[in-house]
């Protein structure tokens, strides 16, 4: 061991404390009763400790969700921080669960905890992963659907980070529209 240097290094703090939530669909319970807070973290090291401790997205049972939200914001439309907001929605084809889902979800998490959206980071509320038999979905939630500059900046950065080509578009939907209409009829407020 001669010559080995042991460094005492402090953990790297994140700008925000984040909460990871898990939803498991049990039809005998209410939606809220199926939603569980897993844990909160606020350092890079603790993020990886958690990430490696839980199931990867592609291994979740259909009907389950992961949500990562800033501490103090609950992963539901009704939360005061979400109710005027909306989401950038990435819809995956069935076969993409095995090719893209884990990569897209990790990239989404890194965008959030690393504060990739620069001056519009304050608009970010969280992100939601839905694992579904008919096709998985990932969405980045922001707090104010009418904040065009913030929403479009976040959408452009997010699309680039996912490595989506110009041929692919992703849409932003206000939660008020999603809540009042059947999902496939929800109109996109913005598209990138």
């Amino acid at each position: 061991a001669k010559g080995l240097v042991f460094e005492m290094v402090e953990k790297h703090p994140l700008q925000n404390r984040w909460a990871l939530w898990f939803f498991k669909n049990d039809k005998s319970k209410t939606w809220q009763a199926n939603l569980h807070l897993i844990t909160k973290f606020d350092t890079v090291e603790d993020f990886w400790g958690l990430y490696h401790h839980i199931q990867p997205a592609s291994k979740l049972t259909p009907g389950c969700d992961y949500s990562l939200f800033k501490d103090g914001i609950e992963p539901m439309w009704e939360d005061d921080q979400n109710k005027r907001g909306g989401r950038w929605l990435v819809t995956l084809a069935k076969q993409q669960r095995h090719t893209d889902l884990d990569h897209f979800w990790l990239e989404t998490l890194l965008c959030l905890i690393g504060e990739s959206f620069e001056r519009f980071g304050g608009d970010i509320c969280g992100a939601v992963l839905n694992v579904r038999a008919k096709g998985d979905k990932i969405a980045v939630w922001t707090c104010e659907a009418d904040n065009r500059d913030g929403v479009t900046h976040i959408g452009r950065v997010y699309k680039e980070r996912l490595g989506l080509t110009q041929k692919v578009t992703i849409g932003y939907q206000a939660h008020t529209d999603t809540a009042s209409k059947s999902h496939n009829l929800t109109k996109n407020k913005f598209v990138v």
Binding site: V44, W48, G49, G114
Partner: peptide, 20 residues
């Protein structure tokens, strides 16, 4: 200042052992 970390920086810590 604001704590921004790019993806490469974050990924560097992926397999780093850490005391918890």
């Amino acid at each position: 200042g604001k704590k921004q970390y790019d993806r490469e920086f974050l990924l560097d810590f992926q397999f780093m052992p850490v005391c918890i």
